[in-house]
Each structure stands twice: as C-alpha cells, then as structure tokens.
Design a protein around this nucleic acid. Structure first.
Lengths: 339, 339
DNA sequence: TTGAAAGCGCTACCAC
DNA sequence: GTGGTAGCGCTTTCAA
C-alpha cells in the first residue's frame, strides 16, 4: 500500500506538499498540485485512516452503544443519531451488546479507547457496576432511558416518563373491561425494563379488585413473543389482554394467539411499547405506547457539540398511547369451559 | 487523558515495560507488573486505539458495506458475519449506503483506508463504475449477489441462483391459475434488482399466453410496499397476484391490500423474496423465496482468513420457494365490474 | 527483566 | 509556495 512518502517521491515534492495538495489545506501551486494528484492516482494512494486518527485525535466520531440492534427500536436510534451526526459532519460507530452486562462493559471500554467526540448509551442492562466504567470520563455522555446514578462532568440523561405511559395504558385496558392480564417481557430483571414491568404490575393491581396477572419472560424477539403467548394463554384464568414490554415481542404474540386459534382483539387484546414502524403494519395493527426517540439524534448532537450548553442535563419525554386495532372490549365473562 | 508515558512515569518504569505489563506480552517481574497495573488504574489509563491501530496495522477488522440496514435482509448479513468474525477474534465495521452509488463509493473508500483484514460488499447498486474503486485492492474481497465484472487477486463472489428462484415462483403462481400479475420492486434500475425484475417479467411472459403485468417501483420499506399496492390495485385488469422483489416491501403490500378492502390470499396472492424472519410473523404469513445468507459469515471469514485457499472463487447458492399463507388459487374469473 | 529508541503514516508548524 | 521536521501513542526489536 502506497503512502505519502511514495507519492512525494514520485511527484518530486515533500510529504508536506502532498498532504496539503490532497487535503486542499494550505497553498499549493496548481501545477504542483496536478503533479501530486497524478502521482497519487498512479500509485493508487489512499490516505491511512489510522494515521489520520492518531494524528488528528479524531474527534469527529460519536459512539453509540445499544442493547439489541435487531430490535427496530434500537436501530431507529442509530438511524436518527447517524442522520443528525452526518449532517454535522460527524460519523457514528455503533455496537450492540445483546443485553449482556459483560459485553456492555467491553463495548464501553472499546468506545472510550477511541477518543470520541461523545458517547451515547441506550442499554437496558446499564447498571451501577457497568457505569463504573464511565467514571471520570471527560467526553460528553448521553444516557437514554436509564435511571442509574451516574456523576459525570458532562452527562445528559434523556428519560421517558414510563409511569404515565403505563398508567394511561392500564386505564385504557381497564376501561375496556379487562380484568385478566398477561404481562410479557424480556430481560425483566434489568434496568428500565425491570422498572417498567414493576410499574405495569403495580398499576394493574392498583386499578381495582379482581385483577389477575400472569407473567412470563422471554427473548427480545418475535420468536420470544410467540413462545410467551403460548405460556400466557395456558394460564388459568386465561388472560383477555396481553401487555408486552415492547412491540418487537408483541409481533410474535399476535402470531402466537392466532396459532392458538384465538382472535385479536375479539378474544385477546394485545398492546406493546415503543411504536416501532412495523407496529402499524401488523394485522391487526398494534395498539402501543409511543416512546419518542426521533429527538435523540438532535438532542445528543446538541449536547455533544456543546451548542446548547444552556440545555438542561435532564430531559423527560412524554410517551403517548396509540390505540390501533389490536385492542378491544374484554370478551363477555364466561365460566370455565365446561368439561 | 493519561497515556503510556504518564503511567510509566508514575510507576517509575519505561513505557516499554508498561506496554508489556498491560498487554501481557513479554516478561515482566510480578512486582513491577503490579506497580504498573496500579498506576494505570489510578490514572484511569486507557490505551489509545488509534495509536494501536496505526502501530499494529490493525488487521483484525472486517468491513461490510450493504445497501440498507433497515431491511432485515441486510441486517441479517451483518449479524451472521459478525457472529463468525467475533468467534475468530475479529470485529466488523458496517456501513449502509441507502442504495446511493455515490455513498457506496465513499463507503468503499472509507473502508479501504482502514487497512482491513477483508471487505465484504453486498450492495445492489454496485456497478462497474463503483467497482473501479476496488481495482487493485490487495485485501480479500467478498462480493455477495452482484454480477459486476471485477478482477481482483483475491475476490470471492457468492451468488444466488435467481433464475431458478424466479422460475419456481412463477410456475407455482401459474399453477394456481393466476394470469394477472403485479410486480413491485425497489431500485429496479440497478444491479441484481434490475436483473431480478427482468427475470420475473421474462418468466411471466414465457409462462403462457394471456398474462398481464403491471409494475411499479417504490422505496425499500413497508411504507413503499403499501404505496405500491395502491398503485397496482388500481391497474386494469387488477392483478390477482403481486410479486414483490423482497419481503420488506411485501409486508407493506399485505397491509395495503387489506386497506383496499381485499383479502390475502382470497382476492390477491402476495409473494416476496428473501425470507426475512418477519415473513413468518405477518398475517397471513408470507409465501416467499428463501435467499440463503446464513453461510455468508462462514464463507466470508474462510476466504478472508485464507483458510480454504482451496475453496472456489465462485459460490452459487440455491434459493428455495417457501409456500405459506399469502398465496392461494386465483379468484374465479369475472368480467369487469358492471357499471 | 528492563530500557532506549525506532518507527507506523500523517498533519501542522515554522523557516525559507 | 514549498520543505524540513516534530510528534500523535503505541509496540517491538535490540542492548544492557
């Protein structure tokens, strides 16, 4: 692989001149320039990025760590962040942890070794122990949807008001007459997902007497949801409404219920969280709680660029219930199926 | 940010010793080692990745360039490649071009500037002009699903036998009695997608007389499919079967047909290509042509690691028709709706 | 077992 | 306008 020196030699100039000519920085006589360009082309020269990164301190990259890129909810964040970053002349490197705390720590370490302009973390598994890695970090850090206690010089936390989202959803389901619930989550032992499931169960119990709750934990995938629905539909009494911790899982639930010979929403109502794009394309379309994330890109870049130094260190976003086709009135109460 | 020198100074040793101690390479007296480790910890030292990359030539990274990460078909490839790469101690950096030839060239350039162990490209928009960028490249290159003519010392091409996939699918639809078709594609002017749409139309016409074809081009997304279905359903005569160039688009078609007040497969049959995971979760589930890609990871890493030097430079994969719920007999012929 | 020093390839500063 | 050169932070000989 040809390097600057090779080009310089071939063009009969110094490396400094080549650098200037190729980066369009500093004055270069047009003729010299042309000569350099030609030499570079002939040698198929390509600047070495690692050298540039080292030399320049590469502060035009933003890191993003998420739990599961296969879940569109996280992919969206990458998308929104990248869109805004590119607009500002930055690039984004993303890593997915698979909800594994160990991999999270590794990812974080890897990111911090990169001299980034900033770091965005949206990982449910982010807990006190993992966040130790972030201790003393000097670059701007943005934490999305996590309640870990973290003290950093330049840390912004963007949170979603899950309590109201859950409350709205539970009230809505109760108003439809549902009493027997299934709660289906993934990784319900960690971070904001643990909090969310607790919130749901609490809101359900607080909503009145006679409420029954069955719950199950599965993988964050449609396959997980499909499996989970089988478990929940076997519960006694059978739930008339299944609350999924996210839409990704809910997609599988829709299918599982159908396979069970039941209809949505006639026999069972289904709700999700997130409002991923797909939730509008399922059949029936999915009632869900929209979790805003399109602002993540703008907000994060704002903080990272230190524009908006005046911006608050804490942002609280409001979720919103979207009623679509997957929810309906609870089926008329019937006694246990006769033998 | 503390660097090696700082640690060395603090521990009272040389940078060489620190490097050895931290990387576990070469002999270091346990006591010295401990002293170094402590110093590093106290200074919150983190090795600078850019320096390492430059010094080491970083040959433990594989690049992947795809057209559209939002389409699970491409995300899968990333997933499979990364899985295998990590297993071998490599990492993967991925970039998505949005089907834009200009961005493809940029991505390719960016990748080549990184001194990678190898490069995998799966981009429909890869054409002769973009592939010039790859000319003279010395690292192993794997091209997935593209017919561009490219001559590289170490280039492996993995292709899918689209002709048979298309043929099987068309025969199947004809056997169901369909005569009026809609073909819905995205980016049907480029690369393998262009080839695939041509193949479809040709197979359709060759399948007998009386076949009518309406076609439309939309974005590679469910939203695109939804829009496309509206266009196709307005065609005269109205198609009884819609062939989508991929499942991602087909998801939207399913919804569009429903919105139009029609049923799948009673009124309209729908088929896709790829067999993305979601195609099993739609309602009705999607009949599609499975395009194998799980082998991409293994195959690519094999070629990159130069294990399997004996492996062929050309691999041809066979697609497979998966009949699910979205296809059925053509509805009984009826005359144009009476006025 | 440890240290000195030579670069990896590039950019930017300063002198000419 | 152009060239010499220092040095980004690290690893890796080679000597001691």
């Amino acid at each position: 692989m040809a390097n600057l020196r090779d080009v310089a030699r071939k063009a009969g100039v110094s490396t400094a001149t080549v650098s200037r000519a190729l980066s369009d920085a500093g004055p270069v006589r047009p003729r010299t320039r042309a000569r350099v360009l030609r030499a570079a082309r002939e040698l198929k020269y390509r600047p070495n990025r690692h050298a540039r990164d080292l030399r320049g301190g590469r502060r035009r990259t933003v890191g993003l760590v998420v739990s599961n890129l296969e879940n569109p909810f996280f992919l969206d964040k990458f998308h929104y962040l990248e869109q805004e970053a590119v607009r500002q002349g930055y690039e984004v490197v993303v890593e997915s942890t698979g909800y594994d705390p160990h991999r999270l720590t590794e990812s974080l370490e890897g990111m911090l070794a990169r001299s980034l302009a900033g770091l965005v973390v949206s990982a449910s598994e982010l807990d006190a122990s993992a966040s130790e890695t972030l201790e003393g970090v000097e670059i701007p850090v943005v934490i999305f949807m996590s309640d870990v206690d973290i003290s950093l010089p330049a840390c912004t936390r963007i949170n979603v008001n899950d309590a109201t989202g859950v409350q709205t959803m539970v009230s809505y389901l109760r108003s439809l007459g549902h009493l027997r619930f299934g709660v289906l989550g993934h990784h319900t032992k960690i971070g904001n997902l643990k909090a969310r499931s607790a919130l749901i169960e609490r809101a359900l119990r607080a909503s009145g007497n006679g409420v029954s709750i069955a719950s199950a934990e599965v993988a964050d995938s449609p396959a997980g949801g499909r499996l989970g629905s089988r478990i929940l539909l076997a519960a006694e009494p059978r739930p008339t409404a299944i609350i999924c911790l996210n839409d990704h899982v809910a997609i599988g639930v829709l299918r599982g219920i159908r396979e069970h010979g039941l209809s949505v929403p006639e026999d069972v109502s289904v709700v999700g969280f997130d409002n991923i794009g797909l939730s509008e394309y399922t059949n029936p379309s999915l009632t869900t709680v929209h979790v805003p994330r399109d602002c993540l890109g703008r907000l994060a870049m704002e903080r990272i660029l230190d524009v908006g130094r005046a911006a608050p260190n804490e942002v609280l976003l409001d979720p919103q219930l979207l009623v679509r086709e997957s929810t309906g009135k609870a089926p008329a109460v019937r006694r246990s199926a006769p033998e």
